[in-house]
Amino acid sequence: MNVKKYFSLTRAGLIETLQFRIALIVMVFGNLLYLTLIYFVWKAIFASAGTDVVNGMTFETTMIYLVLATALFNFMELYIVWDIHRDVQNGAIAIKLIKPMRYKDYMFWSVSGAFVGNFVFTFLPTFLVVLFVTKGTISIGINLLYFMIAVIIGVFINYEIDFIIGTICLFTQSIWGINIMKQSIVLLLSGATIPLAFFPEKFRAVVEWLPFKSIYDTPLTLLLNDDLAPEVIWSKLGIACLWAIAMSLFSNLFWKISVRQVTVNGG
C-alpha cells in the first residue's frame, strides 16, 4: 500500500492549521477560560458534598477527567459534517468522488493534519499542565500507552459518527440541527460533560451499551486508574475496537447506498 498519498494530505492539513494562528490563540485562550469555569464549579460542588471522594472520584481526578475530556473534544471536533455539506453544495464532491481514494478516506486524511496540529498545540500543553499541576495524580507508566491506543480508537469512532451524520445530511440538506443534536448527545453520553461515574446506576447501565463512552470515558479511565486488572483493560479496549469496526462497516454501507442521492446543481 502506498501510504505517501495519505501523509501528503496530513501535511497539507497541518500547514493549513498553522496558517490560522489567531484562531489558534483564541482557541487556547477560550479553553483556559472554560477550564477555569470547570475548576470553580466542581470545587464548589465538592465543597458542598462534604466528602472528598464521591463515587470513587476525588476533586483532582474529576478535574483531570473533565479537563482532558475538553482537550480531547477540542482536537476531535473538526466540523467534518460541515465540510461534507460544503463539498455537496459547491459540487467539489464530484471531483473528490473520482479521486483514486475513497471519499471517506480522503476526508479522514485531509483532516488528519488538523488532528496532529491540534494534538500538539492544544492537547499536549493541556496534558503537561495537568500533569505538573496535579503532581503525581496521573501515574506515568504503561497506562499512558493504553490511553494513547484508546484515544486513537476514539478518534476513529468519532470520525465514523461524523461521517454517518454527514451522510444523513445528503438526504436532509440541513446541517445545523442534526450536527448540534449529535454534539449534545455525544458530549452528554460519552461522559465529557459529567464523568460517567456520577451517573445514576440505571442511566449508567444504558450508557454502557452505547458507543459514545469509548470516545472519552474509556481513554480517561485507562489513564487515571493504573490499578485496573488486565482483563478490564483489554475488555474496554476490545469493546472500543468492536465499536470502531462495527461503525466503520455501517458507515461504509450507508455511504454506498446514499451516495446515489448526491445531485450537484449544474452550472
Binding site: W176, G177, I180, M181
Partner: peptide, 10 residues
C-alpha cells in the same frame, strides 16, 4: 423542523 429539533435536543 430539524433545526428546531436540534435546539430542543440541546
Amino acid at each position: 423542523i430539524l433545526s428546531t429539533l436540534g435546539m430542543i435536543a440541546t
